[in-house]
Each structure stands twice: as C-alpha cells, then as structure tokens.
Amino acid sequence: MSVVIPFDYEGQPVQFNADGWLNATRIASRLGKEPTAWLRQIDTLEYISFMAEALGLNSVPRTELDEIKALGTSAPGIKNRILTLAKSTGLVKSRVGAGGGTWLHPKLAVVFARWLDTKFAVWCDLKIDSILHGDMSVREQLEQALKTLSGRKALASEHGKGLSAWRWDKPVLENSVQFWIGQVQLSLGFDEAA
C-alpha cells in the first residue's frame, strides 16, 4: 500500500491510501462488523468478479460462480472458498502488521460501505472521489515530499556519511510529508472539525 491518509468519520478513524483503497478492517470493527463477513457472501463474490472482469483483472469463472450458488453458503468450506476467490481478483488485499488489515479497491469501497452503513457509504463515496480527483497541486506536493523522503532514505542506506546527514534531515522531511498530508486533507474539505 502507498501512503495512508487518515480521515475522521463521526469521531471514527477511516484510512484510505493515496490511490483510494479503503482499510476495511479498521472501519468495520468500529461499526461492529468484519470485512470477511461481507467478503464471504455469494452476492459479494459475484459483484467482485464482475467488477474484476470490467477492469480487466482476474475474474472468477462463471462456472465456478454457478457451482457456488448451487451449493449455497451452508456447504462445508464454501465461505473460505468464496473469500479465497474474492482475494484472487486483485481487488481485495490483506496485510499483516502495522497498516495491515483488509484493504478494498476504490470500486469496492462504496459497496462495502453501503453494507456497513448507508450514511457512511455516501461519505465514503465523496472522500474517494476527492482523493482521486481532488486538488492535484497539493497531491503533487505530497508525492514530491514522499519522493524526497524516500530518496534521502535510500541515499542514507548507501552511504555511511549519509547516515549522519540522514539523522538530521529525517525529521524535517517527515514533517514535510505530514504537512502535505494535512494540506491534502484541507484542500479536499476533510477538515471535519470546522
């Protein structure tokens, strides 16, 4: 995942990355649900498969979808099979550790959000649109700050002398990245406190 942009929805943290992917695990847990409960539904698998096909990604073969529909979710092991097939499309990613959880492609985020809560779905749709189509000059500044931070880190790793300079440059560069994340949020109207 790329840089995570945190937002606030009614006092609850919601994480998107710069490409609009939603951290489904974090928000679902705040609303008392689990993303796997949504991902293990036959209708969800069918939607994900058709979306993957429309986007030119790996879709689930129609014969396999029909077989799963015929078996139903009460068949042994079918829910895990559905989850595995959903992940195989590339529209669902799971990570372990810091920043981990189940991340959903922007094309799935609103459908998932609708399953969680309708009001949240509308909010989510607007935020994804803002991330993907918002103020590009601010987003470009963020990307430049990230590129500079990454470049200096790589240089520091390559050169022993660079480590000393990195020690002093790192806080300044990290502050620059944090500043531009804040600017992205403000320019896209994410200042919920106002």
Score class of each variant (00 low, 15 high):
residue 1 M to D: 12
residue 1 M to C: 13
residue 3 V to T: 15
residue 3 V to A: 13
residue 10 E to R: 15
residue 12 Q to E: 10
residue 12 Q to L: 15
residue 13 P to D: 07
residue 13 P to L: 07
residue 14 V to A: 05
residue 15 Q to Y: 15
residue 16 F to G: 03
residue 17 N to Q: 13
residue 17 N to L: 10
residue 18 A to C: 11
residue 18 A to G: 11
residue 20 G to K: 02
residue 22 L to C: 04
residue 23 N to E: 12
residue 24 A to M: 10
residue 25 T to I: 10
residue 27 I to K: 06
residue 29 S to N: 14
residue 33 K to P: 01
residue 38 W to M: 03
residue 39 L to N: 05
residue 40 R to T: 15
residue 47 Y to P: 01
residue 48 I to D: 00
residue 48 I to Y: 02
residue 48 I to M: 02
residue 49 S to R: 04
residue 51 M to I: 06
residue 53 E to A: 02
residue 53 E to C: 00
residue 54 A to E: 08
residue 54 A to V: 01
residue 55 L to D: 03
residue 55 L to H: 06
residue 57 L to N: 04
residue 59 S to G: 01
residue 63 T to C: 01
residue 64 E to H: 00
residue 65 L to C: 06
residue 68 I to Q: 04
residue 69 K to V: 03
residue 71 L to K: 15
residue 72 G to T: 02
residue 72 G to W: 04
residue 75 A to F: 12
residue 76 P to Q: 12
residue 77 G to M: 09
residue 77 G to S: 10
residue 80 N to V: 02
residue 80 N to K: 15
residue 84 T to H: 11
residue 85 L to S: 07
residue 86 A to Q: 03
residue 86 A to D: 08
residue 87 K to G: 14
residue 88 S to F: 06
residue 90 G to K: 09
residue 93 K to Y: 07
residue 98 A to T: 15
residue 101 G to V: 11
residue 102 T to V: 14
residue 108 L to H: 10
residue 111 V to S: 15
residue 112 F to S: 09
residue 112 F to K: 09
residue 114 R to G: 11
residue 116 L to A: 07
residue 117 D to T: 05
residue 118 T to C: 00
residue 121 A to E: 12
residue 121 A to W: 08
residue 121 A to N: 07
residue 122 V to Y: 03
residue 122 V to A: 06
residue 123 W to Y: 09
residue 126 L to N: 10
residue 129 D to R: 14
residue 130 S to N: 08
residue 130 S to Q: 09
residue 132 L to Q: 13
residue 133 H to C: 12
residue 135 D to L: 15
residue 138 V to L: 07
residue 138 V to K: 00
residue 141 Q to F: 06
residue 141 Q to R: 14
residue 143 E to T: 06
residue 144 Q to R: 15
residue 145 A to I: 00
residue 147 K to W: 07
residue 149 L to I: 09
residue 150 S to A: 14
residue 151 G to S: 11
residue 152 R to V: 00
residue 154 A to C: 01
residue 156 A to P: 03
residue 159 H to W: 11
residue 159 H to Q: 09
residue 165 A to S: 14
residue 167 R to S: 07
residue 167 R to D: 03
residue 173 L to H: 05
residue 173 L to Q: 01
residue 174 E to L: 12
residue 177 V to M: 05
residue 177 V to F: 08
residue 179 F to I: 00
residue 179 F to A: 03
residue 182 G to F: 04
residue 182 G to T: 04
residue 185 Q to A: 06
residue 187 S to G: 11
residue 190 F to H: 07
residue 191 D to S: 08
residue 191 D to M: 12
residue 192 E to M: 03
residue 194 A to S: 08
residue 194 A to F: 03
